[in-house]
């Protein structure tokens, strides 16, 4: 059974830009999918349709057979609380503590009054500490988020998403702001956690070597269309040149 299903998804932005031109995909539970393509190919738009941060103008996305695209209000919030997301720029509240940032991941499952007052149940606080331990920075709980390095901030981002106890994880260029060694460390953490918890994961990347290293399945996008869908072994240099529409360059590799 497919965990995430894209049914002929089309996105036209108000500027008239056609970001997605009818994408149909099925992603089984627990798969670690890497979406590759040049910037502007529609990768970001694609993963944002999964949690309706971008609402498709045509077609729909279902997660666990729930039509997220058609969900509004409370139903949409419930659907989103099952979908974690991490971002290229981390999107942490810089002036808040690391722990408070991670606890924000619990907000979706909390009664509104508890959330507004910040009255988290004991087990939620304990769980937030566990999440920090799993990304390797348990000692940073009470440090302000902006005092951390980029790699540590992205780990807080992962911990926040993890605190949602999600069945789906979305990652939009999670290592584009990090240096090569940190990039690999963060990607390994992400992959390990996805494996351990059986989380279905979609990661946008534009580095060929990282896509091959971490993906169970690679999806190539170009101009809002899926132009490749296969295993890392099948994604040869020739395939990437086809996806990118140009010869490969050194900047397409993250390196070690």
């Amino acid at each position: 059974m497919a965990h995430i299903r894209f049914n002929d998804v089309e996105v036209v932005y108000r500027t008239g830009l056609k970001a997605l031109k009818g994408v149909t995909l099925e992603i089984p539970r627990g798969q670690f999918v890497v979406v590759v393509g040049l910037s502007g190919a529609g990768k970001s738009t694609l993963i944002r349709t999964v949690n309706s941060l971008v609402v498709p103008t045509k077609g729909s996305v279902t997660v666990n057979d729930v039509n997220v695209t058609a969900s509004r209000g409370g139903a949409l919030r419930r659907a989103r609380s099952d979908i974690g997301m991490i971002f290229q720029t981390f999107n942490l509240v810089k002036r808040s503590s690391v722990l408070r940032n991670v606890l924000a991941g619990r907000l979706g499952d909390l009664p509104a009054w508890r959330g507004v007052l910040g009255a988290f149940p004991r087990e939620d606080v304990a769980y937030a500490h566990d999440c920090l331990a799993r990304v390797g920075i348990p000692e940073k709980a009470f440090v302000r988020a902006d005092a951390l390095s980029g790699g540590q901030q992205q780990r807080v981002g992962i911990a926040r998403a993890l605190a949602q106890k999600p069945s789906v994880m979305l990652a939009d260029e999670p290592v584009a702001s990090l240096d090569p060694p940190t990039s690999h460390a963060v990607m390994s953490d992400l992959k390990r956690i996805a494996r351990e918890d059986g989380i279905t994961t979609i990661v946008n990347l534009h580095f060929i070597d990282m896509a091959r290293d971490y993906a169970d399945r690679i999806i190539g996008m170009r101009d809002g269309v899926v132009v490749f869908d296969g295993t890392p072994d099948e994604a040869t240099d020739a395939v990437f040149e086809e996806i990118y529409g140009r010869p490969l360059e050194s900047k397409d590799l993250r390196g070690a």
């Binding site: 949690n51 941060l53 949409l76 919030r77 419930r78 659907a79 989103r80 609380s81 099952d82 979908i83 974690g84 997301m85 971002f87 720029t89 981390f90 999107n91 942490l92 509240v93 924000a104 991941g105 907000l107 979706g108 499952d109 509104a112 959330g115 981002g157 926040r160 998403a161 949602q164 979305l170």
Partner: peptide
């Protein structure tokens, strides 16, 4: 950024 992150997490 943080607004988008919390919206994505299903916070009201």
């Amino acid at each position: 950024g943080p607004l988008e992150a919390l919206r994505a997490a299903g916070a009201g």
